[in-house]
Simulated assay, not measured.
Amino acid sequence: MSGLAIKPSGIPRSPRRLKAKKCKNPACRAEFVPARSFQTWCSPDCAIAITAAKKQKERKTLEQRDRREIKVRKEKLKSRSDYMREAQISFNAFIRERDRLAGHCCISSGRPLDWNGNAVDAGHYRSVGAAPHLRFDERNCHAQSKQDNRYLSGNAVDYRIGLIQRIGLEAVEALEADQSVRKYTIEDLKAITAHYRALTRELKRAAV
């Protein structure tokens, strides 16, 4: 038997012609008439290309899922000190970008800073060890040369002079008098990290 449909009169019915469609291969997109309703390719080469693209997409999806799972596992293993370190890094990066765009010199020496290398720190007036509650206070942290921050112990006397010039004596005395206690939860630290990363991105976009 031929497989053609038989009309009630006994006369074979002609096969239904499928409508033309566009090839799903993005590099082709030629119009063709498929031999089967499910066919999405116009040629064997396009069929291979479509299959390869589908496999690549599936592989990418699996890789993204794996990365998300790894990130979740890493988050579970993090300690509070890890979150504190991330928050401090994001805050310090914001301070450096803020002062770079403002064209500030070293807060303590007054000398121009070398922004091209790795010679600039975010130096705290009242140190993180002595005043941990001020570690994320933008008034208390400014771009400073590594020489002054690391090898001159922050150059505190000259830092104070530069700080008064920048934010005023009243603000400096307020920092010096601040003996408040601040406990940062992990959620606080996550929020601080996200906040300063976003601010840094905004500064960089505005500078373009």
Rank of each mutant, 00 (worst) to 15 (best):
S2N: 10
A5F: 11
A5Y: 12
K7P: 05
S9N: 11
S9G: 05
S9M: 01
A20D: 15
K21W: 01
K21P: 00
K22V: 11
C23E: 05
K24L: 14
F32D: 02
Q39L: 03
W41E: 08
C42Y: 03
S43T: 08
S43N: 01
D45F: 09
A52W: 06
K55R: 14
K55G: 06
E58Y: 10
R59Y: 08
E63V: 08
R68G: 02
E69Y: 08
K71Y: 04
K78S: 01
R80W: 15
D82S: 07
M84T: 13
A87D: 00
I89L: 13
F91V: 05
F94Q: 04
R98H: 06
D99H: 02
R100K: 14
L101V: 08
A102E: 12
S109M: 07
P112V: 03
L113W: 00
D114L: 07
D114I: 01
W115E: 04
W115F: 05
N118L: 10
A119I: 11
A130F: 08
A131C: 10
P132C: 03
L134E: 00
R135D: 04
D137E: 13
R139T: 06
R139F: 09
C141D: 05
H142S: 01
K146A: 13
D148F: 01
R150N: 15
L152M: 15
A156P: 14
I161Y: 02
I164G: 05
Q165C: 11
R166T: 04
I167L: 03
I167P: 04
E170I: 08
A171G: 08
L175H: 06
A177I: 05
A177W: 03
Q179W: 10
K183S: 14
Y184F: 11
T185P: 00
T193G: 00
A194T: 12
L199W: 04
T200I: 03
T200C: 02
K204F: 06
R205S: 12
V208W: 09
